[in-house]
Design a protein around this nucleic acid. Sequence first.
DNA 1: AAATATTTTTAGACTTGTCTAAAAATGTAT
DNA 2: ATACATTTTTAGACAAGTCTAAAAATATTT
Lengths: 229, 229
Amino acid sequence: MSKNVYFCLMYSFTEENYLKAIYKLQEQSDMAINTNAIATAIQTKAASVTDMVKKLSEKKLLKYEKYKGVELTHLGKRIAIETVRKHRLWETFLHNKLNFSWDEVHDIAEQLEHIQSQELIDKLDEFLGFPSHDPHGDPIPGRNGVIQQNNFILLSELSVGESGIISGVVNHSNLFLQHLEKNQLVLGKKLLVQEISAFDQLVKVQIEDKHLQQLSNEVVRNILVKKLS
Amino acid sequence: MSKNVYFCLMYSFTEENYLKAIYKLQEQSDMAINTNAIATAIQTKAASVTDMVKKLSEKKLLKYEKYKGVELTHLGKRIAIETVRKHRLWETFLHNKLNFSWDEVHDIAEQLEHIQSQELIDKLDEFLGFPSHDPHGDPIPGRNGVIQQNNFILLSELSVGESGIISGVVNHSNLFLQHLEKNQLVLGKKLLVQEISAFDQLVKVQIEDKHLQQLSNEVVRNILVKKLS
DNA sequence: AAATATTTTTAGACTTGTCTAAAAATGTAT
DNA sequence: ATACATTTTTAGACAAGTCTAAAAATATTT
Ligand SMILES: [Mn+2]
Ligand SMILES: [Mn+2]
Ligand SMILES: [Mn+2]
Ligand SMILES: [Mn+2]
């Protein structure tokens, strides 16, 4: 490439992916992000990461000190968040308009998020009715880069007798998403915790005032709920 | 790149662009396509074209003989048509759903046409109601690669007293499209040729049984109409 | 047919992004 | 403090795609 000329400053497919990965790691760990973590996240080798972070550093997208890891600059964070915004808006489009299931949208959105057009994203946002969350319950950053933080809690944190509405997932793997869908554990469903087994931690929940279901520890630790009063 | 693994055979952004450009040249001229023509179409240099056609030739996407120009193979043509299909479906989406005007859609579709997902295109097609034509009146190839050929004629070919419906454009430049839009000469409008000046070839047309407009030779030679009876 | 002009190809270099293997730095255990 | 282990960086190479300048082939004039 290096050919396509745009009116505004542009970052490559690859640069955006690095920034997004570093941003997500930064959200989790809060410390400087080390080379290996980035390599793992982006499925590449440490040597490649070193090369790339040098370039991103020269472009003022992150601060890099040899052997000390990296930290996004304000600009780098801004680009990362814009990419997340595009990703989640496209996921919402794919799910809400094209009827893809929530486990199918991510891979396609990984491609769509790199389409360069501010106007496209604005119009897509409007077309979707300015959604606040993507199909996995993750908040969609605003045009201004502000992310409305969820106050969801883990389903595993609910006590017996408490109820909540399924509002997100921690694990985003296709396997987990398909499992939830198969068991009708989709966004918006209301759950009431009826019993938590002292022996094996199995959680018995009542779904939407109807049937009961036993949920494994693995499942309840990966579902986010909005607690009801 | 070279990283993204897909389930089916994949062609790069660049390869698709070459195939599409060669396909369009082939449609026009019907002879073997020469290096310079491709270079001009794709806005690159002849030397780059030579390199690329060698690669495409090795991949059996076209037949290439030194100094003799190139010709797409069946496979190459198939990929080119698939890319055109994607391009025109995305243009239709941008126009019909996101309210982009017909002069804004092309550049964004140039990016979107390279998104890799057969299922995405199928679902987009369905979402759009299986459109037969894009916002410029160009036919959208079917899944099977068949293109329904238009039997439109140039507005300049209509005689005095004949009428037609605006159905496409020859010139796709933004300037021309904007000009037409400004003068309400959009797809679907019915025109009646009232007078053709013997002196300067200006064509006086009546638009939708209402107001009259004088159209330059340059304009009438670039509008396609479906002739009425 | 020879001279001239144009087109196409080659040769060699550059950029972006990747890799492996080796070297250097940092961290941990004894 | 020394040895061992891990992480990170460097060095050098590769692939895709592009470029310029020069050489080779083809086309057009005279
Ligand atoms: Mn996703
Ligand atoms: Mn998501
Ligand atoms: Mn177009
Ligand atoms: Mn079009």
